[in-house]
């Protein structure tokens, strides 16, 4: 109704302050600002006394070659993430359809597979593709040694995301579709899925964050992604702290952007993020 009632919950916990409260908040703000600044100063000091602020650790970032090499790594990361994401999308959709097919054994199988991929660490799956195909005499390129496990891990989660989307489609629509004589399959294909997909697009985008994170163990299979290329630079420049920090910031910014995009899409299409 009024502007004052659309405030966020964390502001709603507090009422409009009186003069005493305002003074108290002002003092608290100043004290906490000092504490935060002291903490930052302590961190900077630790860098200083350990010599980590020395130019030799940071000058490499002024070189074009450093960024080109990291950029190549980033391309590797993007390639794996997008491929794994695409595979997971298809696989997740199939797992969901199987689970909701109404065919008992198929549904049970899909459920077990979904829960399995959701319940094991992606690292375990990566070790699996690192060791087992080789033991069976299969020579798998490192790209797929990384992409397949990341895709499998994500497919379990995506199956659940899709299922939440399907469940969010109002029950009445299915009944209406069946009542005008559409078959179960057609109802799913023509009525339910298009809407469900629309509901879950923001969640699908958000899941890309998990995929990107999972790709960072590429070094296990020696695939040249952002992290692996950073490790190469570290051995040649002997600049471990600065490089790892910069890499971490890059990953954080990428994932932050993905999250923002997810929220933006959710806001624009007016759907609530289904989890």
């Amino acid at each position: 109704m009024s502007a004052a009632r659309t405030l966020s919950m964390r502001d709603a916990l507090y009422e409009a302050p009186g003069p005493r409260t305002r003074r108290r908040v002002r003092i608290g703000t100043m004290v906490s600002a000092v504490v935060v600044l002291l903490a930052i100063a302590a961190v900077v000091r630790q860098f200083w006394v350990t010599g980590q602020l020395a130019p030799r650790y940071w000058s490499l970032f002024l070189q074009w070659t450093t960024w080109r090499f990291l950029g190549q790594g980033l391309l590797g990361t993007v390639a794996v993430a997008l491929t794994a994401g695409a595979i997971a999308l298809v696989l997740g959709l199939l797992l969901m359809l199987g689970r909701m097919s109404g065919v008992r054994p198929l549904a049970a199988l899909c459920r077990v597979v979904t829960d399995f991929f959701r319940g094991v660490p992606s690292l375990l799956l990566i070790y699996f593709f690192f060791f087992v195909p080789a033991q069976l005499g299969l020579k798998l390129p490192s790209f797929w040694m990384l992409t397949l496990p990341v895709a499998l891990a994500a497919s379990g989660v995506l199956a659940e995301v899709f299922r939440a989307g399907v469940n969010a489609v109002p029950r009445g629509q299915v009944e209406a579709a069946l009542s005008i004589g559409l078959s179960r399959g057609k109802t799913m294909r023509k009525i339910v899925l298009p809407q469900a997909v629309r509901y879950v697009i923001p969640s699908l985008i958000a899941q890309l964050v998990v995929v990107v994170k999972d790709t960072t163990v590429a070094y296990v299979v020696s695939y040249p992604d952002l992290m692996q290329n950073a490790r190469v630079l570290i051995t040649s420049y002997d600049a471990l702290v600065s490089l790892y920090l910069v890499i971490a910031v890059i990953y954080i910014l990428i994932n932050y952007a993905i999250n923002k995009a997810s929220v933006a899409v959710a806001n624009r299409t007016g759907v609530k993020i289904v989890r």
Partner: peptide, 16 residues
């Protein structure tokens, strides 16, 4: 910490 990959954080804590 929501956005940093676990491996990157572990490496920073363990080696940096």
């Amino acid at each position: 910490f929501r956005n940093i990959p676990g491996v990157a954080l572990l490496i920073i804590i363990a080696y940096a």
